[in-house]
């Protein structure tokens, strides 16, 4: 009933050769590793250094480090503050709740600019945030050395993440395609009061308030008191961050399929 297992080594019953074969194997490995042991003298030799990788691969005969091993490594994040639009998608997509949006200088005084601050004490390096970033301003780099002496140093402020960005470390090149059938922001027209909150807070400015005609008052019908404007969302610019939904005072915006 059993498939034959082809043991490459038969049990050695000859007591004189009790220990000979493993010792021969170890000696062979010893001779090999005299020239180039497989270990890497870490702080001085780094695998992310491509020249070193090739040197090791050639010297030890091991197929290590060939190819794009480090190209999409998920290490410490790099944040380009200049292109961040404060959409909060990184914060939403974080499963570990390690991202907090903090105010950075440079925003409009009424609507301060908010960029992610990452607590590496909680981060699991899953990369959901950089996948979600619509502008590609939050990426992950090959930096993996994080040792600090104080726990508070584990929290990287946006400025510090921007410093990482400026070091021009290799950054994760993978950009995930936006799905074809994304939801759009839809408007529940009768509820809208035209308050402009959504257009004001939209990080991509893809919401424009269009004038709508004020209906004629009919007999016995009260015209609702509102501003006669209505948001129109430009779907191609929209990054689906949901900011408009969260700021809408009347809860009249929602996710849905545009007909």
């Amino acid at each position: 009933m059993a498939t034959e297992i082809t043991a490459t080594e038969k049990p050695n019953q000859n007591p004189i050769l009790w220990v000979a074969r493993p010792m021969a194997t170890a000696a062979r490995q010893f001779a090999k590793s005299l020239f180039r042991p497989s270990t890497i003298v870490y702080p001085y030799e780094r695998l992310e250094d491509p020249e070193f990788r090739e040197k090791v691969a050639v010297a030890s005969g091991k197929p290590i480090g060939l190819g794009q091993v480090w190209d999409n490594y998920r290490g410490v994040h790099a944040l380009n503050i200049a292109t961040c639009i404060s959409c909060n998608l990184c914060q939403f997509s974080c499963p570990d709740l390690c991202i907090e949006m903090v105010t950075v200088p440079g925003g409009d005084p009424k609507h301060p600019k908010k960029c992610p601050e990452i607590d590496y004490g909680k981060c699991s390096y899953c990369g959901f945030c950089s996948d979600a970033c619509p502008e590609g301003c939050l990426t992950m780099t090959t930096r993996y050395e994080l040792s600090v002496t104080k726990r508070s140093d584990m929290v990287y402020s946006p400025q510090r993440l921007n410093e990482v960005f400026k070091t021009k470390l290799p950054m994760n090149p993978i950009r995930l395609a936006r799905p074809a059938n994304e939801d759009s922001i839809l408007l529940d027209v009768p509820l809208c009061i035209g308050c402009n909150a959504c257009a004001r807070d939209c990080p991509t400015q893809c919401i424009t308030m269009l004038d709508i005609p004020k209906p004629e008052a009919k007999a016995g019908e009260k015209i609702p008191k509102r501003i006669w404007k209505e948001p129109v969302v430009n779907d191609s610019d929209c990054v689906r961050c949901g900011t408009c939904i969260s700021v809408c005072p009347k809860e009249c915006l929602f996710w849905g399929t545009r007909k």
Binding site: A26, Q29, F30, K32, S33, P37, T39
Partner: peptide, 13 residues
């Protein structure tokens, strides 16, 4: 050192 080389590593260095 010897054990290191037998194990394909370097030992104390």
């Amino acid at each position: 050192k010897l054990l290191g080389r037998f194990m394909d590593r370097r030992g104390a260095m």
